[in-house]
């Protein structure tokens, strides 16, 4: 009886290790730096590679559809350009650093349910450009002059960049935005 109990413990440990390793691989497989910068990371490119099954699983576990392969690109940032974790207690300036694609958006993502408020997304159509054509967006928990992204009061957040290619053109590797921390209590 004791022998079987010991064997059962081995099987249970094996099942738990298998499920835990699957979860860890789903969360980490296919995540790469978007371009040369460490600021933005992307798993969307993994949708067409060897790790596609894990990358798709990541999106489905979140209850959402993956971005349309070859059509919409995505990248996320958890830190500012200096490597500090993004938190709603600070104020940030997100500035475009190069040519922008045909359509793009930057959304605030928190761990809670997705907000249906339009202030959590800035995109091609809603952002007012500077005189030189660049885009400057203020991310903060309180209303800001100019383009404002509401980071809410949830604490840590992630910025999600989405972009759509023009016709048959390919998208550039890295999102053309940097994130600067302006004020932190």
């Amino acid at each position: 009886m004791r022998r079987y109990a010991g064997g059962f413990a081995y099987v249970l440990a094996g099942l738990a290790a298998g499920a835990a390793s699957a979860y860890l691989v789903i969360e980490n497989k296919g995540v790469k730096s978007a371009g040369s910068s460490e600021l933005w990371t992307s798993r969307a490119k993994g949708l067409s590679g060897d790790s596609a099954i894990y990358v798709r699983a990541h999106y489905l576990l979140q209850g959402r559809l993956p971005p349309s392969t070859g059509q919409i690109d995505e990248a996320t940032a958890d830190t500012d350009s200096d490597g500090n974790v993004l938190t709603s207690s600070c104020r940030y300036t997100v500035t475009s650093t190069g040519a922008l694609p045909r359509w793009w958006s930057i959304a605030v993502m928190t761990d809670g349910s997705e907000s249906s408020s339009p202030q959590v997304i800035a995109d091609t159509d809603s952002v007012i450009r500077e005189a030189d054509g660049s885009a400057v967006i203020h991310a903060a928990a309180t209303p800001q002059p100019g383009n404002w992204l509401n980071t809410g009061a949830a604490g840590r957040f992630t910025l999600l960049y989405s972009a759509v290619a023009a016709g048959t053109q390919r998208l550039p590797g890295a999102p053309p935005f940097n994130i600067r921390r302006e004020e932190c209590p």
Binding site: G63, R64, L65, S105, E114
Partner: peptide, 8 residues
């Protein structure tokens, strides 16, 4: 919920 990166 389904497309959190797309404008509302």
């Amino acid at each position: 919920r389904l497309f959190p990166g797309l404008p509302r």
